[in-house]
Nucleic acid binder design. Sequence first.
RNA 1: GUCCCCGUAGCUCAGUUGGAUAGAGCGACUGCCUCCUAAGCAGUAGGUCGCAGGUUCGAUUCCUGCCGGGGACGCCA
Length: 562
Amino acid sequence: MPESAIRDAIEAVLSGMGVESAKIQLERPKDPAHGDLATNVALTLASVLKRQPRAIAEEIAERLDLDAAGVQAVEIAGPGFLNFRLDQRQVAAVLEDVMVAGTGYGRTDVGEGRPIMVEFVSANPTGPLHIGHARQAALGDAIAGLLEWTGWSVSREYYYNDTGVQIDRLAESMWARYQQHLGNDAEIPEGGYPGEYVVELANQFENEVGDRYAGEVTPDALEALRIFAVARLREEQDRDLGDFGVRFDTYFLESSLYENGSVDSTVADLRATGLVYDHEGAVWLKTTEFGDQKDRVMLKSDGTPTYFLPDVAYHMDKWGRGFEHVINVQGSDHHGTVARVRAGLQALGLPRGYPEYVLHQMVRVERDGKEVKFSKRSGFMVTLRELFEQVGVDVTRYLFQWRKPEAQLVFDLDLALDQSEKNPVYKIQYAHARMCSIFRKAGVDLEDGAVARADLTLLTHPTELELIKRLTNLPGLIERAAELRAPHLVCDYLEQLAGAVNSWYHAGNPSRNPKLAVLVDNPELSSARLALTRSVQIVLANGLAVLGLSAPKRMERKEAPS
RNA sequence: GUCCCCGUAGCUCAGUUGGAUAGAGCGACUGCCUCCUAAGCAGUAGGUCGCAGGUUCGAUUCCUGCCGGGGACGCCA
């Protein structure tokens, strides 16, 4: 509200100065000495008006209607910035917004309820989810959360590549373990899966069917092993993700694209475009027509499709289901596929740049500064479950969300296991728990009406005003983070806020600084400070909720794992 | 060789779409502290924003080139 009032007032002045349709940027300066809001219009108009920026700033300041703008004072600073100091009433009124909106504070409606799909994790059902999937699960879920908070109708989707070479290798690995279990000689094939879990699965398989498939390998045996293993691994992956706090709206099987004929019809549709040609026995698509670096094979010389084809069919399906906005969260090792999938889709008439991709870099786990790589169960990488069972779901999710996707990430186990405020997650959650603790101490309910009606103009201390200012940034921040698909901005915000909150809390330590405590003798002032406490609590809880993290009312220390 | 990402304090990283004196956390150093909940609090030091040009009133931010790190370049997924 205060922003639009100021904007209007400036516009009124500018039109009086003969300037129409100037872009007025208002920003919240980081330095409190620069007021509550600032604008650089005078600087941007300098070249248009051919006058000194400071002279323009002075004229604007002189003509500005302070009352209408809801501004207490305006100052000119630096090369020609206009700094506005808001009315005390305006500042405090923000807390009313926070308390009225409650768990909805921070939500906006830029998405206008339009559908958007976030596809993420999408691991092959060939083994347990590992650390790379963990990053993707945390990241994708947070992006989905951001979109929900900005008014999109979000669908989370998981694509199972349940056909192809990888699955064949899995079946062969199962075969080998099954034979070994029966006491026969067999070896995991080249490119197979050596992890412990295949042994477990083969044993379970034997429990169910006995030695029916002993002896020579047959297509029937491999088929039975494949179906068994894929079903069990899908269950396990779903369970791991569920326990990690991630739920999907739809699971999409690659095999369905073959079964329902969409792969074949995609071939036919692509042929109809005239961009398909035969070369050296294979069938190619001219993806270079749409900016790919070279043309791609869609049907191999043995007649089977490359992975590229079902990918195109799959995305045509997404489009057909009404998703004009799709975000695919994938590891950056997939970046080579982006151009060709888009090219295939463009050939079929979909818009350029569809779908959108968020590609994240790889993760390494470190402890004592050394890489931790191996997991016996998975056969190579640390699994998702091993990670969150050891350090907790909130910590795991957060540590994957707090860095931008396109940067490489070191998952520091020492930091993750630290339960002090050095651990950024706990720092934020402590701040939240402290707010709740103040209410407990006061014997007042969080949603108490008297608190909501407090006289907020009593909040005049600089640290209080600074906190209030930070709280007002939440909706804009969520909007920006959603637009940029950048959950790490929320982390950054929450850490900064928690830092400010914790300082404020400690400054009000009753034994040291009783006048600054929330629970002071003066009931009006105490009520006002409780209102601030409540508002802080709401903003922290909502910020955590966007990321899919819990906001504990009290913190409990866990026994340190050995 | 071509393409994509990254390069900011000793370390790990932010940086509000081009603004004012570039910020956090950890580590280091200094001083407090037994408390509305915690191995806590307050403060100090620490910078050629990889390098060189360009655009601009103004560049960590945009453009070009180079250097360094990672990744992708299959009739594998």
